[in-house]
Design a protein around this nucleic acid. Structure first.
Lengths: 108, 108
DNA sequence: CAGAATCCCCGTCGATACTG
DNA sequence: CAGTATCGACGGGGATTCTG
């Protein structure tokens, strides 16, 4: 995947988490290497085909590392790359603002 | 607009910037009160109707304040609320990660 | 000037079936 | 086990026209 029309760095960050399940996937891969099946069990609502697609996009963006073992039955492990781990910090800031936001609107 | 199915604060933050022009709008309102027309001129690619919609969503989320003056011709000013201003910090972190990301992929 | 209303395309996303 | 392939619904969002 080519990076399309880089307007500003903010747009890139926005694009990367664009997709219904990207954030959840990155959350799951925090501190753990997971196999395809494990991801599927952890996200029962997401279809296999779409999970595959989202993982592929994250891999192409360089956020997720895909380690395939040439075995039968096949075994594939997903983990965060270095820059993927850096992204956790961004998600942490987003999460904290979300908490602040919830408290803020509950006060009214 | 009701907050739909709050799963985690992260999802809320994600939802709020979901929409093609939300980020740009918030960027523009940083440090300035703007009229509808000014926003339109600053974002020539976005259609009026859609700009209206995006602004309304941001207002319902409490990110943007809409000040309408009962004049003829009408005059409406948009600005960031307190929590909208707090959100700028999140966008700043996203922006910095984006810069880091660009440098990171250029090195390859 | 600042919208509201309408129409419609297309990308996202879901469901099912098949494969190495 | 870990995918592909295919089809189709839905809604985001673009363009145009109308209104107070």
């Amino acid at each position: 995947m080519e990076i399309k029309n880089i307007k500003c760095p903010l747009e890139i960050t926005h694009n990367i988490i664009n997709g219904k399940w990207k954030i959840s996937i990155i959350c799951l891969l925090k501190n753990s290497v997971m196999r395809f099946n494990e991801l599927q069990k952890a996200l029962p609502e997401i279809q296999k085909s779409y999970l595959t697609q989202q993982l592929k996009e994250l891999e192409e963006y360089g956020i997720v590392h895909r380690q395939a073992y040439l075995e039968v039955p096949p075994k594939v492990e997903y983990s965060l790359t270095e820059i993927g781990n850096e992204f956790l910090k961004v998600m942490d800031v987003m999460n904290r603002w979300g908490e602040y936001y919830i408290k803020h609107i509950e006060r009214k």
